[in-house]
Design a protein around this nucleic acid. Structure first.
Lengths: 207, 207
DNA sequence: ACATAATGCGAGCGATAGCTCACAATTGTC
DNA sequence: GACAATTGTGAGCTATCGCTCGCATTATGT
């Protein structure tokens, strides 16, 4: 088994100037990931692209993995913000409308910076700081489960945790495959019918 | 975008001796992937592990990507063999029993050489010879759809292709996540209930 | 203003990667 | 047994990688 690559920032930038440096590094990492792919993203190249010396890079990040982890975190937070908001909106709605809205947002979420999303999904070895992605999944799972709990009277499922797993996994996979396989450009009409189908799938399962 | 890494073998081994060399290389690649991970699998290391000189390696494969592609092909063929057999078994059965059997085999399939499966799923950049994996998905998709076609009277679905996409995607994702997340060791009882749930999900959707 | 801390720099080190090429050994053919 | 084709060898080239370290520059506190 491969030993852990360190993924935590080394020091927390305190002054204005250094925060700009850190941002530039993360931005550059994202740009290079999209433009050149994961393999070609070396620390030297990232520093150059960021207009920052390689020495400075290593002041803040112990290596490439850490930079990539930072990019992933930022992307996941962008997504989770949307997702959390929708869960709040939907909390008191009946499952038909709620599920439909959640499916829609799952597709939306996969369309935030799709090029970056694709690289992260396809090229990043899920190793080391995989934990971030897992945290992401756990939160989605938890949010869905707490929705189910507060609507348990409307549905006939024994194990809510299991049900949440089944629903979240299916919805995520459908959105993921649809967006990534359908030549990057899921027509709105196709997206609409996909939402119909996924909603029917999940609703049929829940009640 | 990253330029294509070549993934086709360079020449086809014709004599007995050379076929043994090629096999040793693919075996060694699989062993190293499992033991050391994708990053540490260099052509030099693979050749050494195979007991073959680096020169010979480059006679048959243009690089690491090609060797990994060969490993993936072999693994996918192992899986598809099982899957095809089950589709044949199930062809004339009603959807209740058929779906249940198919879900079960999806989980089984994910348990063929699970260590290798995990590495392939988590660490291999889906780049270049992604086509192989897609061919795999397309076949599963086609098999499922042709089953649906010959049982279309039993179910109420308009677009069979879409239905196949929804079912295959969901089943695959559920099996995948269950096997990879549940600490490598999905208890038989847990597997049983997962099969129940997935079956209910799909059946509910199809009719 | 000066001292001290924080931040930024980049030449360059050692390691390892991918890969070639001139050559040796083995196998097939007659 | 002779000759060609096939197959196998591995030293070693170049390129790039990750990363350090001594020093320069800029900010902060008093």
């Amino acid at each position: 088994m491969a030993p852990k690559p360190l993924t935590n920032p080394r020091k927390n930038a305190s002054q204005e100037r250094s925060r700009a440096t850190v941002d530039a590094l993360v931005d550059a990492t994202a740009r290079i990931l999209v433009r050149d792919g994961f393999d070609r993203a070396s620390t030297n190249r990232i520093a150059e692209q960021a207009g920052v010396s390689i020495g400075s890079l290593y002041q803040y990040y112990p290596g490439k993995e850490a930079l990539v982890a930072a990019v992933i975190d930022r992307h996941n937070q962008d997504i989770m913000q949307v997702v959390r908001r929708v869960f709040a909106e939907v909390a008191s709605q009946p499952i038909e409308t709620a599920v439909r809205r959640l499916v829609a947002v799952a597709i939306e979420a996969h369309r935030i910076d799709p090029k970056l999303h694709r690289v992260l999904a396809e090229q990043i070895p899920r190793t080391g700081r995989l934990e971030n992605v897992e945290a992401f999944n756990r939160e989605a799972h938890a949010l869905f489960m707490s929705y189910l709990e507060s609507h348990s009277d409307e549905l006939r499922v024994a194990d809510l945790g299991l049900a949440a797993f089944v629903c979240v996994t299916s919805i995520e996979a459908l959105a993921h495959n649809a967006v990534l396989h359908s030549s990057e450009k899921l027509s709105n009409k196709a997206a609409e019918t996909l939402i119909d189908e996924a909603t029917r799938l999940v609703i049929g399962y829940l009640k």
